[in-house]
Simulated assay, not measured.
Amino acid sequence: MRHLAGRVWWYPHDEDHDNVQGGVAVIADESGSVLVDAGNSPAAARQIRADIEAAGLPAPRRLVYTHHHWDHVWGACAWPDVEVIGHRTGARILDAEARRPWGHRYLREELAANPLLGPSFRARARAMDSWNDFTIVPPHTEFDDALTLPGGIVVRHVGGRHAEDSTVVAVPDSGVLLLGDCFYPPPYHLRKPGDTYDLELIRSLLDENDLGRFDWYVDSHSHPRTGSEVRQLLASLSG
């Protein structure tokens, strides 16, 4: 875990993209820290918890989902004492996901039925060292458009092609905007030819709006970027 800026700490993504472990943010607060995403498994969540304790940060009190995809929510059952916050659309999806018979056998059956699920389901199998006591945790607190948490943290629904419930988390006093996967193309099994990054969504988040401007723009599967680095990325993708 590294200190990013202000009261924001960052547990980085796994450089091996086959493992599909995104970064997790910790927004420190003496009244109880805020997690942004849960890790891709209970094992990952336990490692993050150990790093939070080692860094001397206040224990988490709230957990915000940037969206419902498994690599962002499957660690939540290892955070039993936190309030889980997520968009209403994602909550309905996770209610259904929680009723599925997750386990290695079920993953094999689903993969046989739809080989396009291969990258995701093989990564899920690698992430889970045990299915004992595993549960998917739908949000306890739901929102539609935006929610402001204690300490001035702003949770904002932005949608997009990657996930309809995609949400960003702004920490204005630290100059950090946490993006989740909001501007990514759709997941592999839903992707069509020509699907790519949502450049208009990136531009809208870079432009000055009621969220403000930020020093750091952090998506889940890359290294944190400054505003100038995001503009360079935009230029390369637009070219």
Rank of each mutant, 00 (worst) to 15 (best):
C182K: 05
R122L: 13
A146F: 08
D198E: 06
D95K: 11
R203I: 07
E142N: 09
E110C: 13
S33W: 02
L179R: 00
D145W: 09
A170N: 01
R161L: 10
G23T: 02
I48E: 05
R108I: 03
T167I: 01
I48R: 12
W70M: 13
S204H: 10
Q21R: 15
G239C: 02
H69K: 14
E164K: 11
S174A: 15
D210S: 11
D145A: 14
T141S: 07
P115W: 10
A113K: 14
R88M: 11
I93S: 12
S228L: 11
L178A: 01
C77R: 02
R126G: 05
A146H: 09
L177M: 05
G152F: 02
W74T: 04
F183A: 13
R92E: 14
S204A: 13
Y197K: 10
N209K: 09
G103V: 01
A76I: 00
R213D: 14
G23E: 03
L178D: 00
D29K: 04
A43K: 07
R92G: 08
Y106C: 06
N114G: 07
G175C: 06
T167C: 02
R161M: 11
I85K: 03
A98T: 08
R161Y: 02
G194A: 09
I27K: 07
V26T: 10
A54D: 10
V137T: 09
V82N: 03
R126Q: 11
P150R: 01
R126L: 10
A163P: 02
R92P: 00
E109L: 15
H3K: 13
P42W: 05
L149F: 00
R62Q: 12
Q47Y: 05
G75C: 03
R99V: 06
H162D: 04
R156F: 01
S33I: 04
E30Q: 13
I93N: 08
L178G: 00
A55W: 08
G180C: 00
P186E: 04
E200L: 11
A50Y: 06
T141I: 09
N40V: 11
N209A: 07
D195R: 09
R161C: 07
A96C: 06
L94A: 07
V218K: 03
E109M: 12
V168A: 01
R100T: 09
V154L: 10
H157F: 08
R191C: 11
A5P: 00
R161G: 09
G212K: 08
A43H: 07
A146D: 12
K192G: 12
H104R: 10
A113N: 09
T167F: 02
R108E: 14
Y106D: 11
L190H: 13
V137R: 15
P185L: 09
D129M: 01
A55I: 04
C182L: 06
P80I: 09
A25M: 05
G103E: 06
I52H: 08
E97Q: 13
Q232R: 13
L199D: 04
V230G: 01
N40S: 12
A170D: 02
E97G: 00
W131V: 07
A43M: 05
P101Y: 09
W216C: 02
L234K: 00
D71S: 15
E109C: 08
W79L: 04
D198W: 08
E30D: 15
F183R: 00
D145C: 10
V8M: 05
P172C: 03
H189R: 12
